[in-house]
Structure formats: structure tokens, C-alpha cells
């Protein structure tokens, strides 16, 4: 029983970390640009496929580094050519735009890489379980946890300590005043969008090694990452971090006793939080703290 709980707890943490990477990106874009990016999960899938196609040339490690960067650059291009045109318009425009984008990217993946799943092979060194008793603790899972910790720490350090990061945090509160202080907010939004999309790309590379690649692989992660943002508190990145882990672990632990309930529990959790504490777990801190 203990092993079963540990097994599911580990699964929950892994799942939660994917939610966290996704939700942080969605949150960054939502907070600064007021755009809910429905295509976020498709950028995740693209990240996995890019790594798959790059790996024969660059090796796994090269692809692991380059694919998320390319996805970030792609995000920059999408922001500059499409997303920035709807900033001044009501929400429904950006919702429709990213919704459409989501279908376009998904079909693009189908056309290029096929409808069937593809494996993203990982180096053997990462593949073996650490011990027989804890068969679920593979080197890859530990690697995955380490990468997410490093990425999240780097993101928080960037936002907390660099000038650009400080400006992004200020911009989530009042973009007009940021521009009145001599900051090019168009550029700030573009960078921030690219950063959020790059995180989705990274999540895609990591997910590919765990569950393989398919054109819909991001879909199961999009809704939970919105839930993670709401549970954690809109506007708070720390909240998003906590929210992602909480729903990941809650859903995996539920499946120990009630396997059909693993998805439902996230929504129940969201409803409970919304009723008991409408601003979310960390919502009181306001914006991005």
C-alpha cells in the first residue's frame, strides 16, 4: 500500500510539474498581455516534435536545448504577426485567435509528423530505474524534476532580480505607467510571450520522453493548467506554482482509491477553492509575486 501511495504521489508530482510549466507560461501571458492562450498546449506538442526532428542531427542533449529556444522564437513570430494585433480589442478576439491557432498547429503536426504516436527516445543513462523496489523512480523522472526546478528557479530569478523582469512585474499592474517611464511595452510583451511559449516548448520536450509524442499531447494539459492558475490565484506566479503541484498530487492520490475520479477531483478542488477563497490560494498578494 505504501508503495502504491508513493508511486501515485510520484506520478502526481511529475504530472503537477507539467501543469506548473504550462500554467506558468499561460499565466505570464495572461498577466501582462491579458490574452488567454488556448494554443499553449499545441506549442507544447510542437516542442516535442521539434526535439524529435532535431535529435538525429544534434543528439538528444542538443535537441533538448535547441527545441525550446526555437519554440520561443516561433512564439515571438506569432506574437509579432498575430497576437499583438488583438491587444487593444475585447477578450473574445484573442480567445478566438488562439483557439483557431490551436487547430492550425494541431493539423500542422498531423500533416508533418503523422497522426500516430512517435517515441522521443531518451539516453539510456536516464532510462533505468534507480532500484527494484521503487521501480517508478527512473533516472528520467529525477532528471525531469531537476530540470523543472532549475527552469522555475531561473524564471523566478529573472522576474525578481533583472530589470526586464522587474518591468514585466510592473507591467502586470499598470502598463501605461511603465511606458511613461520610457519602456517599450510592445517589446516587453513580445519577450514575455516568447518566454511563456518557450516554457511550453520545454514542457513538450520533457513530456515527449515520458509519454511519447502525438498531435494532441498538449490537450490534456491545457485545462488543468487553467485550473492550476485559478486554484493558485490569478496574477500570482507563486500561486500558479503551488496550484499546479496541488492539483497534480490531488488527482494522482485520488486515483489510488478511485481511479475514475482523477480528473474530477481537480474540478472539485477548483470549486471548493472558489467558494472558500475566491481569489485563490495565493491570490491576496496581487500581481506576480
Amino acid at each position: 500500500m505504501l508503495t502504491l501511495i508513493l508511486f501515485n504521489l510520484t506520478n502526481g508530482i511529475i504530472l503537477g510539474l507539467f501543469y506548473v510549466l504550462m500554467a506558468l507560461g499561460v499565466s505570464l501571458i495572461l498577466n501582462l498581455s491579458n490574452v488567454i492562450n488556448f494554443a499553449h498546449g499545441n506549442f507544447l506538442a510542437l516542442g516535442g516534435y521539434f526535439a524529435f526532428s532535431l535529435a538525429p542531427y544534434l543528439g538528444y542533449w542538443g535537441a533538448f536545448i535547441v527545441a525550446p529556444i526555437l519554440i520561443g522564437v516561433l512564439g515571438l513570430i506569432v506574437e509579432q504577426t498575430m497576437i499583438k494585433r488583438v491587444y487593444a480589442r475585447p477578450h473574445v478576439y484573442s480567445l478566438l485567435l488562439t483557439f483557431g491557432l490551436s487547430f492550425i498547429i494541431q493539423d500542422m503536426c498531423r500533416t508533418i509528423w503523422g497522426v500516430n504516436g512517435l517515441p522521443l527516445s531518451i539516453p539510456n543513462a536516464l532510462n533505468s530505474p534507480l532500484s527494484n523496489q521503487f521501480f517508478f523512480l527512473t533516472g528520467y523522472r529525477i532528471f525531469l524534476v531537476a530540470v523543472v526546478i532549475v527552469a522555475v528557479a531561473a524564471l523566478f530569478a529573472f522576474l525578481g532580480f533583472t530589470r526586464v523582469g522587474t518591468r514585466i512585474r510592473a507591467g502586470t499592474f499598470d502598463l501605461d505607467t511603465v511606458s511613461a517611464l520610457g519602456i517599450n511595452i510592445g517589446l516587453l510583451r513580445a519577450l514575455n510571450f516568447a518566454l511563456g511559449i518557450g516554457l511550453a516548448g520545454l514542457a513538450g520536450v520533457l513530456a515527449g520522453g515520458q509519454i511519447g509524442l502525438n498531435p494532441n499531447m498538449g490537450d490534456n494539459l491545457v485545462l488543468p493548467s487553467f485550473i492550476a492558475i485559478i486554484v493558485g490565484g490569478i496574477g500570482s506566479l507563486t500561486g500558479t506554482l503551488v496550484g499546479g503541484l496541488v492539483i497534480g498530487v490531488a488527482s494522482a492520490l485520488t486515483s489510488v482509491w478511485w481511479s475514475a475520479g482523477s480528473n474530477v477531483v481537480m474540478y472539485i478542488l477548483m470549486v471548493v477553492i472558489l467558494v472558500a477563497r475566491p481569489r485563490g490560494i495565493m491570490g491576496e498578494e496581487g500581481m506576480m509575486t
Binding site: T166, R169, A170, F173, L181, G182, E285, M288
Partner: peptide
């Protein structure tokens, strides 16, 4: 929501 120091680092 930013510290005084961070407010001064925005411009």
C-alpha cells in the same frame, strides 16, 4: 506590489 527599490528599477 513592488518594493521601493524595484519601483526605481523600472524606468
Amino acid at each position: 506590489h513592488l518594493t521601493v527599490e524595484d519601483n526605481l528599477r523600472v524606468p
